[in-house]
Amino acid sequence: MTSTPVLQASNLVKRYGSVTAINGADFELREGEVLAVIGDNGAGKSSLIKALSGALIPDSGEIHMDGQPVRFRTTLDARRHGIETVYQDLAVIPALDIASNVFLGREVRKKGFLGSVLRQLDKSAMREESMKHLADLKIGIRSAVQPVETLSGGQRQGVAVVRAAAFGKRVIIMDEPTAALGVKESGMVIDLIREIRERGLPVILISHDMPHVFDVADRIHVHRLGRRAAVVRTGDRSMSEVVALMTGAMEPTEEERAGGR
């Protein structure tokens, strides 16, 4: 790989008293790829993701974005760098409409006196913009004024993904985006992930679902005992081999241990 990684972390450490959540972890996300992050419960993958999304400040180690060192103190810091996160627990407000949810916390105000002095929202602009993003990701919702609670679970997650894709300029992190969904709806979200990759945005997908991971990911980051145990290309290993790497039943190759090819 000659191009600079989009997001890279080296030797991250985070300790809580005597517990080590991140134990010298490395991480590398490349341009235009879907990178799956897998690991057993307690392997520390969510701590790693929190460090990358600004929800946790590591004790030591470095994070680089596009080759530049960055420090995220809050999730807002990470957002300013173009990193958006989709959370597993459907982080939308059910009673608000789709456009309000997409623009929640980033509302657009009208131009001129109405917006600057009277602080009036530009609802039609937000609605149109939301519809555009929904269409971009091929989510078949006809109207952005319907409340999110009228949507199915998959469509709701679609709204959360649209929000991330609309504002995430560099990286989309998806934390177990299908954990709360049924089979069919999970399929839709996986389609969305492909759609985002096709638009050139790299995606970090945290998932327990091996078929999904093998379905959509280009590379798999295997997290174990607080650090990166291996990185494998999806085509190079079988599902059971990857699970064996994850549980420690199998040793990775030197190349995989060093971050893969």
Binding site: G140, R142, S143, Q146, G154, G158, G187, M188, R194, E195
Partner: peptide, 12 residues
């Protein structure tokens, strides 16, 4: 990559 048919909401 087309969206699944179930993703489509009934027309308003």
């Amino acid at each position: 990559m087309s969206s699944s048919p179930t993703m489509a909401a009934p027309p308003s």
